[in-house]
């Protein structure tokens, strides 16, 4: 099995520190290769930035596969360039401290990087239960939107669960009844039908069958309840839509409030899955080609 390539762009926020147990756990469980990257501004002292970078998560220097990269310039540009020149499977981007005030026109850095790199992004909101981050992953949840035509997050969730020997939980909720929904034959309107559909979607690539839970109403509360009920250690979600309300920064996405970390998968990822079972050279070539 080839190692998972992790890129952790850091800005020394408190949540960056709090994400460390999860990173350590992932490095151990998947023999992941960790790259810690700090991008500093043009006017900043490079020597000071280098000193801070070497001091952050100092124990990572003892990890078998880890490196630190210091870059100058705009964060998004440098991260995109790094992803283009080196194999990266997963970006680690804990959320910044929310101000909970409207920020008109604000676009989340995570979303910008997700769109620019087309790589899955691991993130953790301020409500994440950090006391569980060091525990081995036993339950992997995957949120499926029944109205969506494709589910790019599903192959990643399956591969992640399989690599860690964890139980996969497929979570969904029946959509609100609108005329387009009623006319679309492919959208199930009964929990049992929806559960059958989800099982069929996840049949390939799983050694043990996925557990399925479908809520009857698609509300924030029901989504959180499903995540809580399956005791998820991590949840895979599709790239968040940005309705007008969110453009004003008034309310974060629902998964931002969950107690477990989240892996957000772009609509059109660079690769359909990580291909961790492939040999390192083959997988790196695939990633570069994509």
């Amino acid at each position: 099995m080839r190692p998972l390539e992790l890129l952790f762009p850091i800005d020394f926020t408190e949540l960056d520190f709090r994400a460390i147990p999860f990173v350590a756990q992932l490095v151990d469980a998947l023999h992941a290769h960790l790259t810690l990257m700090h991008v500093h501004g043009d006017g900043d002292d490079a020597a000071l930035a280098a000193e801070r970078l070497t001091s952050f998560f100092a124990e990572a220097d003892r990890y078998p596969n880890s490196e630190r990269i210091l870059a100058r310039g705009a964060l998004v540009d440098r991260v995109v360039r790094q992803c283009a020149t080196a194999p990266v499977d997963l970006l680690l981007l804990p959320a910044s401290e929310g101000v909970w005030l409207p920020r008109p026109g604000h676009s989340s850095l995570r979303l910008q990087l997700l769109e620019a790199t087309r790589l899955p992004v691991w993130t953790m909101g301020p409500n994440a239960n950090v006391t569980r981050l060091h525990l081995p992953t036993k339950n992997v949840a995957c949120w499926i939107d029944l109205k969506a035509k494709s589910h790019p997050q599903l192959p990643f969730a399956i591969e992640y669960a399989e690599s860690l020997g964890a139980q996969l939980h497929l979570l969904s909720a029946l959509p609100e009844l609108t005329i387009p929904v009623l006319y679309d034959e492919k959208i199930p309107l009964h929990p049992e039908t929806a559960a059958d559909l989800l099982r069929a979607e996840a049949q390939q690539g799983l050694t043990r069958s996925a557990k399925v839970a479908v809520a009857e109403a698609d509300t924030r509360k029901s989504r959180h309840r499903l995540v809580q009920q399956c005791n998820a250690d991590v949840i895979f979600v599709p790239q968040a839509e940005r309705p007008l309300f969110d453009w004003f920064g008034a309310r974060p996405s629902w998964f931002h409030e969950t107690a477990c970390p989240v892996v957000m998968v772009p609509k059109e990822p660079r690769q359909r899955s990580w291909s961790l079972s492939k040999r390192p050279n083959e997988a790196a070539a695939l990633l570069r080609a994509s």
Binding site: I20, P21, A24, H134
Partner: peptide, 11 residues
């Protein structure tokens, strides 16, 4: 700190 020690111990 409730952190996995094994990546460090390996070296």
């Amino acid at each position: 700190r409730k952190q996995n020690p094994f990546p460090e111990l390996q070296t």
